[in-house]
Nucleic acid binder design. Sequence first.
DNA 1: CATCTAATTAGATGATAATCGAATTCAATT
DNA 2: AATTGAATTCGATTATCATCTAATTAGATG
Lengths: 193, 193
Amino acid sequence: MQLNRLVSFYKTMGDPTRIRIVFLLAKGPLHGQAIAGKLGLTPPTISHHLNKLREINLVYQRRDKNTVYFYLNESVLKHQSGVLAKLADKEEVKKMEEQNLESQKVIENFFTRDGKLKNIPAQRKKKLMVFEHLIKGLKMGKKYEEKELNEYIKQYHEDYATIRREFIINHYMYRENGIYELNPPEMWAKNEG
Amino acid sequence: MQLNRLVSFYKTMGDPTRIRIVFLLAKGPLHGQAIAGKLGLTPPTISHHLNKLREINLVYQRRDKNTVYFYLNESVLKHQSGVLAKLADKEEVKKMEEQNLESQKVIENFFTRDGKLKNIPAQRKKKLMVFEHLIKGLKMGKKYEEKELNEYIKQYHEDYATIRREFIINHYMYRENGIYELNPPEMWAKNEG
DNA sequence: CATCTAATTAGATGATAATCGAATTCAATT
DNA sequence: AATTGAATTCGATTATCATCTAATTAGATG
């Protein structure tokens, strides 16, 4: 499920310029001006598209002096390839639906009517479902101060420290210099390859 | 390659309503009104989206009395899943590029400057490349009278009968009651599974 | 600090497309 | 032939978005 995420992926890929960028990066990293040159477009346009591609985690970047190199994130492609393959298989579709229902049930059980988390499930599977529900309010690509993240978690449950730690352990987020950020879904514990 | 085809696929999938339709049909065929009902949209809107989905061969339909049932074409999903998987693999990308170059070369060898086909290659692989080039001027979903198809082929080569026959043999097209129509690319000889 | 280079943001423009109500087609049944 | 039921087409409305130029930011280097 995560319908929005799917739609975003396809919407982003559904542009000739972006597909061409993806094909270019599939052969190896490039910097912005190189892409602009190869495609005959202006740097602002490339910047615009790279932004979109970054939003779906299809590219990431590394800086070297003044130039920024853009890399293709192959794991996202593999993930989406898997989704398509499953969609082509009735049995898999059925399984997906069942999982959705199951997760819905768990959410209903562990949250109160006004959206508070009653307690953290002991069973790992259920725990992950709860965490995935919690992070829905966080924005991909946004950097969170620890304090800000604590406040966010406190909306749901007072023991923000435990939950924050679990976010890291299960790869929903990562921390760098005290700054927290969401990981792309391929990295989440549930999907760990 | 076939960049346009890729882009069309993604552009079409990049809409929440259409994704939802695809998920619905993944569980089994449905008729238009049923889809409209389940999605809370009007029949014209559904019709619009089914048109788009038909354009990329993702759905086909069968009529039963007055109601038309729409089916998901799983082979397209499998095909696209494969494309994504290849894109995630540098080696495969390299292969794709080489194939493109090779095919370009063959086209240059077998066609004159003004676009006429000199002769039909004897080697099967090259022959298929030539045919794929020829059908680029035909429109997916359009129905062609035999005469019309002959005329089209004659632009390129006088022996339209042989070529027309080859189109069928290699599953680029199919014939029904003397009417010819393009097959989706997954069915072409090159991609035969 | 001044300057250079690369990247990004802002704002404008033009094109595309999702959705709906109304009108129309198409096939089946009376 | 007339009627019904479903699907499609038409036209209008609204929203989104790719692209550009111009202006700005951000690092790196002299």
